[in-house]
Structures are given as structure tokens and as C-alpha cells.
Design a protein around this nucleic acid. Structure first.
Lengths: 200, 200
DNA sequence: GTCTATATTTTGATAGAC
DNA sequence: GTCTATCAAAATATAGAC
């Protein structure tokens, strides 16, 4: 039996995802929890704090999941493959939370905004380090590391647009699609050659 | 000298992009236009209608630009290359408008929502038709056409995350990066083989 | 076409009883 | 930990003068 705080968080995740943060009111959250809106403030000090809490937990879990999936892997191709699979799997299994983390940054206070952006930077830097290492080893083609990392992370989010948890395509199969696409792109010379030629 | 309606639209585009539709108030728009908020309603019947107008114009221009860029091209590789270039160029040149069109759908009335979603479907179907034709001709590898189209369109949006109009990387160079990446991905067998093997 | 003034609703948040 | 009651502010939109 879930605590009321957990219920509030779950309801907020659902509403923030469906209607957006600013379009969701405290009384709407309370109504779906079966309590009065004043009772929300016993569990959370403000509406913004609910959003912040969701984003904080999501980013921490996302990064922890990535680190766990990379543990023990040394081959750079294996590491990138595992990183992409981890990213895609998490985004498909936590569609609502990752959507909020990606699109509701503007609802945060400046301090909380900075904190979440920093967590996101740390996450992206793990990908960028793998790309950089692969380039240094000569396994991946030389190219702008940041541009590549954004392209990879954005591409992997595509699945969340059309993926339905009750559909017939399993998460692992989708993760493999994007993993193969990314590894091909990184090993291939065409994109990278153009990127490095024009980035200066 | 721009009309007041055009000024209102421009200011709304800027604010909707910076703060989001729900976080932007009519009085804020009016203030930046140098008029009182009541005066807004002489030009637009409601706040939602400003958003709808922006999305409508953006989607129409996006599709018209794509059709113009495809005109006269018959080779399927040329057509896909031109389509990707058109998509990327438009998104970099109209960053604010396309961001709003992609992320502020929830502010629309149900009727207007349907209309915009339909326009978006029509746009996506142009890409899907090219992919399908390329597969039939044997130029592209067989795969789920919808999954491919979402992957392509999402990937091409990545540029808008980091692109700064006053940066030193020209729009055409970026468009070429994504064009090459997509054409490689479509011609290659790996991604497509996995996609078609698991999609059933 | 723009103004002042205002109607109406809703919001996030607080006080204090139980 | 949840309630009732309420505050103060802000929102969208309208009416009518100029």
C-alpha cells in the first residue's frame, strides 16, 4: 500500500505528462488523489517542488542505470552499444518521467533548473567520453563529439514518440534497432567526415 | 513598418518559445508590444487563437517548403536527400516556430489540435512515401516505414538543440551532416534487418 | 485601434480546527 | 495527516468611451 506522498507523485507524473506542468493545478492533483488541495502541502512545500522531485529522481535513476549497464565493459564498441541500449530502455520503461525531464525544465526555479541541467550535462558527458575514447582508439571516425552525442541521444528518444507499452514490439528489440543504427553511424566515415570538415 | 497584428504574432512566438504557452500571459504579450492587454483582442479573439495561428502558418510553410524542394527530382536518393535538407534547413531557420509547433500542441482546442495533427501527418506521409518507394525500388533496405520516418525526423531535430544562428557553422553544412547520416542509415542493411525481423 | 475599467474564474498557498 | 475556510494575486476576456 503506497504512501500518500507516493500517490501524489504518481498522479503528478501522469498529469504533468498528459497536460503539462503549467496546465496542471494543485487542486486537480488533489482531486485525483482523493484528498483536498490543502493536504498536498503537508507532503510537498510547493507545486514547483513536486516537479523538481520528479526530475531529480528521474535524472539520478537514469544515470545510475547507465553506470550499472556499463560496469565491467571495456571494449569501446560494447560500451557504446550498452549505453544506447540503456538509454533507450530507460526512456521506454519510464516514458512519462523522461518526457517531463526533457520538456518541463522551464517550470523550475533558477536554482533547481541549474541543478537539473548539471545532472543532464553529467549524463551527456558519459556518452561524450565514450565517443571521444572510440575516436582516439580509431574505432569511431573523427567528428565533433558534442554534435554526435546530441544526434545519438535525440535519435534514441524517437522510440518514445510511438512506443506503446502494450504493443507487440518488445523494448529490447527497439533498443537493438537504435543500437545498430548508432554503431553503424559512428563507424561509418561519411557523416563524420562532413562534420569534421565543416565544424571549424 | 509591420502591422500591430504581425508585431503581436512575433512577440508571442518569442515568449511562447522562451517561457512556454501556459506560462505566457496576454498582458505580457501586450506589454512587449507597447499596448494594453485589451487591445490584443482587437487583433485576435483569444490567446489560444494566437497559438493556433502560429502553428497553422508554420506547418503550412514547412510543407510548402518541402514540396518546393522536391519539385522536379525523380531519383529516390536525391528526393530523400532533398527532403532531409529541407527539413533541417527549415528547423534551423525557424527554430522558435518549429519548437512551438512540436511542443505546444496541448494548448490547442480539440478542433484545432486535430487540424494541426492532420497537417503533421500529411507532412510525415511525404517522407514515408519516399521511404516506401525507395524500398520498393530496392534502393533502401526493407524496414518499418513509420519507425524509420520518426527516427529520421527526430534525428534531424537534434540540430535545433545546439544551433545558434550567430555561430560559425552554416545551416547548409549542418543540413548535409544529417542528410549523409540518414542516407547511410537507409542504404545500410543492419538497422533495417533488425527492424524487419522483430517488427512482426 | 487603443484606451480605462471591470467582471469572472482560478490559481498557489496559508491558518487553524480536529 | 486531513479537513474547512480563506487570502491575495493573477488570469482571460468583455464593455464601452474616445
Amino acid at each position: 500500500m503506497p504512501s500518500m506522498k507516493a500517490t501524489i507523485t504518481d498522479v503528478a507524473v501522469d498529469l504533468f505528462h498528459r497536460k503539462g506542468y503549467f496546465a496542471t493545478s494543485i487542486s486537480e492533483i488533489a482531486h485525483q488523489c482523493g484528498i483536498q488541495k490543502a493536504s498536498i502541502y503537508y507532503h510537498y512545500p510547493s507545486k514547483e517542488n513536486i516537479l523538481f522531485h520528479i526530475q531529480q529522481v528521474t535524472m539520478e535513476e537514469l544515470t545510475a542505470y547507465l553506470r550499472a549497464n556499463l560496469e565491467g565493459l571495456v571494449d569501446i564498441g560494447d560500451r557504446m552499444g550498452a549505453a544506447v541500449r540503456s538509454h533507450v530502455r530507460f526512456h521506454l520503461n519510464k516514458q512519462k518521467e523522461t518526457f517531463i525531464a526533457n520538456s518541463e525544465l522551464r517550470g523550475l526555479t533558477p536554482e533547481h533548473y541549474q541543478e537539473i541541467v548539471q545532472k543532464r550535462d553529467e549524463y551527456e558527458q558519459i556518452f561524450q567520453a565514450i565517443i571521444r575514447e572510440g575516436i582516439e582508439e580509431g574505432v569511431f571516425s573523427a567528428a565533433d563529439v558534442k554534435i554526435l552525442s546530441y544526434a545519438i541521444l535525440t535519435l534514441c528518444n524517437a522510440g518514445a514518440i510511438w512506443f506503446k507499452p502494450r504493443g507487440r514490439m518488445p523494448v529490447d528489440a527497439i533498443a537493438d534497432i537504435y543500437k545498430n543504427f548508432v554503431l553503424r553511424g559512428l563507424r561509418a566515415g561519411d557523416l563524420a567526415a562532413v562534420a569534421v570538415a565543416t565544424a571549424g
